[in-house]
Design a protein around this nucleic acid. Sequence first.
DNA 1: GGAATCCCCCAAAGCGCTTTGAACGAGGGG
DNA 2: CCCCTCGTTCAAAGCGCTTTGGGGGATTCC
Lengths: 325, 325
Amino acid sequence: MNLKELAAELRLSQTTVSRALNGYPEVSEKTREIVLAAAQRFGYRPSPAARRLATGRAHALGVVFNAERNAFMDPLFVEYLAGVAETSAKEGFDILISPSTPRDEIVSFGRLARDGTVDVIILSAPQVTDARIALLSELEFPFVVHGRPPEPAGVSYIDIDNFGAFQQATSFLIQLGHRRIMLMNGEEHFTFAQDRSRGAAVAFAAAGLPEGLLEEHFMPMTAENAYRCARQALESDARPTAILCGSILVALGVLRAAAELGLEVPRDLSIVAHDDEMPAFPADQFHPQLTTTRSSIRAAGARVAEMALARVAGQKPGAVAEVCN
Amino acid sequence: MNLKELAAELRLSQTTVSRALNGYPEVSEKTREIVLAAAQRFGYRPSPAARRLATGRAHALGVVFNAERNAFMDPLFVEYLAGVAETSAKEGFDILISPSTPRDEIVSFGRLARDGTVDVIILSAPQVTDARIALLSELEFPFVVHGRPPEPAGVSYIDIDNFGAFQQATSFLIQLGHRRIMLMNGEEHFTFAQDRSRGAAVAFAAAGLPEGLLEEHFMPMTAENAYRCARQALESDARPTAILCGSILVALGVLRAAAELGLEVPRDLSIVAHDDEMPAFPADQFHPQLTTTRSSIRAAGARVAEMALARVAGQKPGAVAEVCN
DNA sequence: GGAATCCCCCAAAGCGCTTTGAACGAGGGG
DNA sequence: CCCCTCGTTCAAAGCGCTTTGGGGGATTCC
């Protein structure tokens, strides 16, 4: 059943029925009730395609999904998506996953922004120089960011306090007497990696320690990479006594390296991991249990989706800049 | 730039331009070339919304995303999604994630099927009596299934050989001399759990062993559940000497239970886990390393998406029924 | 009582595409 | 020479909704 039929059934014009259903004030309460009741009764559902064409709005939010990155390094993407899904469902918004490889990611963005298939784009893991942000800004297409954008001015985003978390964790290890500390960080071009790096460096400076004692590695945060890197470091003469891990996956690799070298945690080696909460692999299910500083990525997903919806509703870009934890 | 403007520019009718672009035979090769070149030059992109309204086809495939289930028990969903994304990208199909809670999942399906926002639905983890399949069948809405549907007739699906895998694994353990074997299975209402259960039972029967020696547990496959269940079983007098795990997550919980009880793997306890390949948490990164029987969920995602696209292209339901591995 | 003011409601024009039915030359067969 | 077919092209009618620009009737005000 479509609007025309419904209107005919009610002996009203399409205009009136449409307005009644969409809550416009030009229609009397009495007819509105009648219309709503009839819509309910006939199970009328407006066609999204038609509405989209008429209004120009898609009633959907876009998430670009980088298959490579997500599958190997981001088991949390599901959890994040769950958060996004939660709030978008409330508003009846659909979520469009635009698949892309790292190479054509920027093309995907362009397509998504120009096609009008979505009203707003959520992007994650901003980089120090981020082509996606540049493109969307230039197109003046609404978007929100999960993570700290390189130039936060005029951009709505939500971030966790990576700087603070790593500063604290590092200070903590220093207080415990550790001197040779290793930081296994994500790839250098991500802003979060920069923030974490700065946090650790500041902690070293505050303690009056030479920076050379902090051994830092930037790399894609897979378990395999972490294993190799940790193994090498732990075999060296001046092996670190504590390792700061950028994710649980990294911690997993480090643990394996330590176990193979007969190092006991935490006796011979301290491990601190910072990651979002991972319901599927709860940190306390690991053996040995890890010290982690956690935050809920699901909540983050929900929040960032809220921001996205707010942008669609007309909120100015840059209106929101939250740092949680 | 829209079709009308492009047509005006070319001094052709919209009809001709549309047909030229969509490869219809009624237009001469010469004009087609001219049109294609102009479209390229002006960067013309047809509006998906308008096309959707006119054709009734959405050029998108739907995946219903059950946040609860996926976040806690299915870290592989990302990987699966990556596979789906890969092939759907090739055809230029979008992926619509329809969020839902377990409660309103069926409503989500109905909405998706009736709205015309997607052309086909992919559903996973079919159950012994599956309301979603019943609904889509009744609506005659195209869908394909990842996993064995309860009544495979007339349904296109792809599955891994759960029966065979668990039969073999069980036989293998029996051959090694194990008698008290525990099977930690998924929830009873999933067809895959049934298949696995049957596989193990058949192996026992084939070995002439009484079924009572097989201790089977059906449960949501989280690490926490597995931990609790394994802990209890391993503390009992007649503790199992081998455990068959339904997923890597389950294995993780079992490992922890074993470690806490001072049982060494594989000396005191054999563990076999069956799961899809998990790039983020490769089985060999665990310590101790696990014996797993693996398959690629990403490939499965890609294959099931192919099937979905074939259905859209007109292939009959039930035309494909693949069992891999 | 007539004009001005609301309040509701409507007809019709889009949104940008596909697709039907028809037109119009050019060529071929009778 | 006329009729028919074939190959191209076109005008126009949707697809199902929103939204503009009125319009009629009841109410109010002078």
